Simulated assay, not measured.
Amino acid sequence: MKVETWIFAITTLFFVVVTPGYWIATSHYFDGSGDWTGTVALAMTMLLALMITLYLGFHARRMDARPEDRTDGEIADGAGELGFFPPYSWWPLWVAMCLAAGVFGIAMAAWWLFIIAAGLGFVALSGFVFEYYRGEYAH
């Protein structure tokens, strides 16, 4: 994970340089005050990249080196089980449809549609979360 740490560290440094540059460049167009919305968004992006850098750096020191992190690593060293990949599921479709209907209800001020979508969305989200506790793929 050291490579990933370096990638995010370079990204953090990029945003450290770009954020004040953006504020200075936009200050000529906004009566000398700068564009605070874009500047704050870039500063938050820089802090997010810094947070990920610190997290990866903290865990990279405590983990055993992965095959891709070692200079003598072979492709065969990475063989084996990579993790759990769930089978097909219809629940994400229903969750997305309820979310779309709810947002549409808010945008059109159709509160009745939002309330129906929220109720159905609760059912769909519950089904999605508890999918592996019942049925064919129960653990």
Rank of each mutant, 00 (worst) to 15 (best):
Y29F: 15
M51E: 05
R70P: 00
T45R: 04
T53H: 03
M51A: 15
F84Q: 09
Y55A: 09
M44T: 08
D69I: 01
V95P: 07
P92L: 13
M63P: 01
L99K: 07
D31T: 15
E81C: 05
T19H: 07
P87Y: 08
R62F: 04
A107G: 00
M63K: 13
V103G: 00
H59W: 12
V16P: 00
L99H: 06
W91V: 10
W90H: 14
I75S: 04
T39M: 10
I75G: 00
L42F: 13
D72A: 09
L99N: 08
T71K: 07
R61E: 05
T53M: 07
P67D: 01
W36G: 11
V17K: 14
F104A: 12
A41S: 13
E68T: 03
T37W: 02
V17I: 15
G32C: 02
F84E: 10
A65N: 06
G21R: 11
L42K: 01
P67L: 01
V18N: 01
W90P: 11
C98N: 11
P92C: 13
P92D: 12
M97N: 01
L13N: 11
M51F: 15
H59V: 12
L42M: 09
A79T: 05
M51H: 12
G21P: 05
V95K: 08
M51P: 03
S33G: 07
R66K: 15
G73M: 02
W36Y: 13
Y88S: 13
I10V: 12
I52R: 14
D35W: 03
G34P: 02
A43C: 09
G83A: 05
T45Y: 04
T53W: 05
W23V: 13
Y88K: 12
F84V: 13
M97P: 00
F14N: 10
M63D: 11
W23L: 15
F30D: 05
H59A: 04
L48N: 11
G80H: 03
Y55H: 09
I75K: 08
T39S: 14
P86E: 01
G34Y: 04
L56P: 02
G32I: 07
G73N: 02
A9L: 14
R61Y: 08
G83C: 07
V103Y: 04
F84I: 10
T19W: 10
G73Q: 02
M51T: 15
A9E: 12
E81V: 14
G78S: 06
G73T: 06
R62V: 06
L50K: 02
G57W: 04
F84S: 11
I75Q: 05
P67K: 01
T19L: 07
T37V: 13
G32T: 04
G32P: 02
G105N: 00
R62I: 06
G21Q: 09
A96R: 11
L54D: 02
A101Y: 05
G83E: 04
C98V: 00
H28F: 13
